[in-house]
Computed example of a mutant assay.
Amino acid sequence: MSAYAGQKLEAAQTKSLNDLVGPSPNIQIGNSYNSSNITIRGIGNQQINAGQDSGVAIHSDGVYIGQPSLTLATFLDLARVEILRGPQGTLFGRNATGGVINVVPNEPTAETHYGFDLTAGVDPALFQISGFINGALNDSGTLSGRVAAQQTYNRGFTRNLLPNGPNRLDDAKNQSIRGQIKWEPSDSFNARVLVEYANDDSNGPATFLEGTPDPTIPLPSILVGQSRGDVGDREVFANINYRKVHAFNANLTLTAR
């Protein structure tokens, strides 16, 4: 098992599940347009169609995320991220043959605090802002709320040389917002409502065709003579490319001790 606290993730500039591949052994995370490919210890399956189920389960605030296209969303105001290796069906149910990735957000508290983070860069242009506000909603402190939001824009690392397609690829254009209300009348009981929305409206990744695995095997005739772009200069010819992901989640959590 690997566990990462939210503050450590922020300090390491960990923005999404993709960024956990380096520090986490035995896990591979990738994406293909609007789908994801997640494996733990080699177990999982490549997600090509939106209706397919993975061998690795993703849970957000205790809720199973069934659509693979939603699993690569950006991290927002998290308490921790857990990676559990090996079969986890006893505790987490279906589709956990390879393991589970558990994303746990920060919960509302009665204390008033807030924060924001701003990141900017060039080549390509980058802008990201995120923030949260938390505090009590009544005098007794039994009712509290928390709101967090994030906006990310990255112009894109790869230039598209065709005039009738997207100008840049490998970009980022996404927004997310989460609101929570927690009622805690006693130490033995609390109820929490969470509502969140995420939107990814980027152009998607660039694809380069460099050849075949065996130099003696030629490319298909339809590709012979076609421009294949340049990996070194990050230039490609693409007339169609997009990534459209919209996610809405609402859940009620009751806790009795």
Rank of each mutant, 00 (worst) to 15 (best):
residue 140 S to N: 15
residue 49 N to P: 00
residue 240 I to S: 12
residue 66 G to V: 10
residue 234 R to A: 13
residue 110 A to Q: 05
residue 254 L to Y: 14
residue 123 D to L: 07
residue 99 G to Y: 02
residue 143 L to Y: 04
residue 17 L to S: 02
residue 241 N to T: 07
residue 130 S to A: 12
residue 41 R to H: 09
residue 247 A to M: 13
residue 5 A to W: 01
residue 194 L to S: 11
residue 172 A to G: 06
residue 161 L to V: 11
residue 132 F to W: 14
residue 2 S to P: 06
residue 30 G to S: 07
residue 26 N to V: 06
residue 215 P to Y: 01
residue 120 A to Q: 13
residue 70 L to E: 08
residue 190 N to H: 12
residue 218 P to R: 12
residue 6 G to K: 01
residue 131 G to V: 08
residue 56 V to Y: 00
residue 51 G to W: 08
residue 246 H to I: 12
residue 26 N to W: 08
residue 42 G to W: 09
residue 20 L to G: 02
residue 132 F to D: 09
residue 175 Q to M: 09
residue 77 D to Q: 05
residue 175 Q to I: 11
residue 185 P to Y: 07
residue 137 L to C: 06
residue 213 P to K: 01
residue 134 N to C: 06
residue 89 G to F: 07
residue 220 P to W: 07
residue 82 E to N: 11
residue 229 G to I: 00
residue 78 L to W: 00
residue 241 N to F: 02
residue 164 N to H: 00
residue 174 N to W: 02
residue 41 R to S: 05
residue 242 Y to K: 03
residue 9 L to M: 01
residue 28 Q to A: 08
residue 45 N to R: 15
residue 71 T to P: 02
residue 113 H to E: 08
residue 243 R to Y: 05
residue 235 E to W: 00
residue 162 L to G: 10
residue 18 N to W: 12
residue 221 S to Y: 14
residue 113 H to V: 07
residue 124 P to T: 05
residue 25 P to I: 03
residue 173 K to R: 15
residue 1 M to C: 12
residue 188 S to A: 13
residue 112 T to G: 07
residue 132 F to A: 13
residue 231 V to W: 03
residue 184 E to Y: 00
residue 125 A to S: 05
residue 22 G to H: 07
residue 224 V to Q: 15
residue 160 N to R: 03
residue 249 N to D: 11
residue 25 P to F: 04
residue 86 G to W: 03
residue 22 G to M: 07
residue 248 F to E: 12
residue 69 S to V: 01
residue 2 S to T: 12
residue 208 F to N: 03
residue 104 V to I: 14
residue 196 E to G: 13
residue 191 A to T: 01
residue 16 S to R: 05
residue 246 H to W: 03
residue 4 Y to W: 14
residue 52 Q to D: 13
residue 177 I to F: 09
residue 249 N to R: 15
residue 67 Q to G: 11
residue 132 F to K: 12
residue 174 N to E: 11
residue 11 A to G: 10
residue 163 P to R: 06
residue 109 T to L: 06
residue 36 S to D: 09
residue 251 N to S: 15
residue 5 A to D: 13
residue 100 V to L: 02
residue 208 F to V: 04
residue 156 G to A: 08
residue 157 F to C: 08
residue 128 Q to R: 14
residue 154 N to M: 12
residue 189 F to G: 08
residue 169 L to H: 01
residue 121 G to M: 06
residue 171 D to C: 03
residue 15 K to N: 15
residue 139 D to E: 06
